[in-house]
Structures are given as C-alpha cells and as structure tokens.
C-alpha cells in the first residue's frame, strides 16, 4: 500500500508539471496583458511596466523562471490584488471552498444513498417513484436556480436563514444544500439501479436461502457491491462540485476560490490563473487517488499493489 501511494505520488508530480506547462502556454496565448488600466495606459508606459515584471522576456525564459519559483513554492504575487502573494490568496479561499464542497459531497451522497436504498428496497412502490422524481428534479434543475429559489423563499419570504455570506453554521446551510442537490440525485440513481440488480442476483438468493437476515443481506452483501459504481462516479462528481462552487459562491457571497479563479482568467492575472489551476489540478488528482484506494477497501478483488509491479 505504502509503495503504491509513493508511486502514485510520483506520477502526480509529473502530471502537475505537465499541467503547469500546458496552462502556462495556453495562458500566454490569451490576448491582452495583466495591467489593470489597459485602456488608459499608453504603449510606452505599458512596455516599462511589463519590463518591470519580466513580461517582456521570451516566453521560454518566463516559463523557466516560473517553474523555478514554483519548485521553491513561490507562486508570485497577484496583479489585480496588487502585491498580494498568491499563496495567501489561495490559503484564504481554499478552506472555505473545501468546507463548502466536502460538506455538499458528504451530505449529498449520504442522503442520495438513503434515497437510493429506499427506492431499491421498496422497488416499484410509491417510495420508489417519489425518490425517482426527486432525483430527476435534482439532476435537471441547475444548482443556481435552486439556490436562487432557496434564497428567496427561505431567506427573504420566511426569514429562516441568512441570505448570504459565510462563517456561522446558519450561513452555511443554504449554500451547502444548494450544492448537494446534484450529488444527491446522481448517487441515489446509481445506487438504486445497482441495488436492484444486485438484489436480484443468484448469490443473494443463495444467501437468503441460507437464512441471512434481511438487514445483513442488504447492508452486508448487497450495498457493498452496489457501492462500486457509485465510487466511480464520485470522481467526476467532485469535479462538477468544484465548478458548482464557483456559481454557488457567487450567489451566496461566499469568499472562496471561485471569485479568484474567474477574475484571474478574465483579467489575465497570470499568477492567480496558474495558482488556482494548479490547485484545482492537484485536488482532482488527489480525489482520483483516494477513489482508487477506496476501491480496494470496498472490493478486495481490485488489488492496488498489482502483483510484482
């Protein structure tokens, strides 16, 4: 296991390096410069400022400089938020976005599983149909519409929860719920389909014939096997949550990474673009690693160490 993780970490660094290289090149292809008052600064003045930040040098040199700093853990300073170190900006935004995303993922899959379980056990009953309607709505209604409705009714009309901002538990409820609808819907559908299939398989009939209790049957034998496809979709789900946070953060004025990322791209804030891209890439690779590890725990047939590798 340890060897496996070390190997994966090595691949991870290589992947990050490749991502850093490609994003750097793509970013330099963007039109415009990171200056904030481009429309007003004359070409001569812009050249002077760009020289100050080394932006007048050949892209290859800029690239090596960047990678050099990156290796030393220096992500540079933001152009838009003048002089603010990118690392501090990330450090401020990441915990907030992570808190929002992880809670949403956890709550979403938890309730999604409950719903899926209920639907599969009570297959073809009113519960099944109800769960189905909920998950279809959850998948088809975009989170920002749901967030807007929630904000209006719960926040304004009924005055139950704060409309926006972040910090207190009350302020966190609505953003988390809005974001968890999608993972809830997805996981409930996946689990339901799998459970119905597993419950109908031969070994389940055997187990039942052997006199295994209903509870053990479902939770020990069926659920375990039905979880594998769910774990597979967790990866893409985590990614869609990352983009989801951008929207939800904006609606509820949550001070996460979303603002930095969109603003960075729109204003050519090179160091912010690189910083956030690398962070998102790192996070995604990490999620994939965790999912691979989870496979082994849920299903011993999937072996991680891979023989003599």
């Amino acid at each position: 296991m340890g060897k496996y993780i070390a190997k994966r970490a090595g691949y991870m660094l290589i992947t990050l390096f490749i991502i850093a290289t490609f994003s750097f090149i793509l970013m330099k292809l963007l039109p415009g410069s990171p200056l904030t008052a481009e429309q007003k600064v004359t070409a001569a003045q812009r050249a002077i400022i760009e020289a100050k930040y080394g932006l007048d040098q050949p892209i290859l040199i800029q690239y090596f400089k960047y990678i050099g700093n990156l290796v030393q853990g220096d992500l540079g300073v933001s152009f838009q938020l003048k002089n603010q170190p990118v690392t501090s900006i990330l450090m401020a935004g990441v915990p907030v976005s992570a808190q929002l995303g992880i809670w949403a993922l956890f709550i979403g899959t938890f309730f999604g599983m409950l719903l899926g379980l209920l639907a599969s056990i009570k297959h073809n009953t009113i519960f099944d149909y109800g769960a189905n309607i909920v998950s279809v709505l959850g998948i088809s209604i975009p989170s920002f519409i749901f967030a807007g409705l929630l904000q209006y009714f719960v926040g304004v009309k009924w005055g139950l929860l704060p409309i926006a901002f972040w910090g207190t538990p009350e302020q966190m409820i609505m953003p988390i719920i809005s974001l968890s609808i999608f993972p809830m819907a997805i996981s409930s559908r996946f689990l339901r389909t799998e459970m119905i299939e597993v419950l109908g398989s031969d070994y389940m009939v055997t187990a039942k014939a052997k006199g295994v209790s209903n509870f053990a049957l479902i939770f020990k034998h069926a659920l375990r096997n039905a979880l594998i496809p769910l774990i597979t979709v967790m990866g893409p789900m985590a990614v869609s949550l990352m983009t989801g946070t951008l929207v939800i953060e904006q609606i509820f004025s949550v001070p996460g990474l979303g603002e930095q990322f969109t603003r960075g791209v729109l204003t050519n804030d090179y160091s912010i673009i690189m910083g956030t891209t690398l962070f998102f890439a790192f996070f995604f690779i990490l999620v994939i690693l965790i999912i691979d590890l989870l496979y082994g725990i849920v299903d011993p047939r999937i072996r991680l160490a891979g023989g003599d590798d």
Partner: peptide
C-alpha cells in the same frame, strides 16, 4: 460586503 449577484443584493 462583497456581493456580485444582483438578485442577492436585492434580497439583502
């Protein structure tokens, strides 16, 4: 406070 979304501003 920073509020980017017009609807959020109106609600507040």
């Amino acid at each position: 406070s920073i509020v980017k979304e017009t609807s959020t501003g109106v609600n507040l």
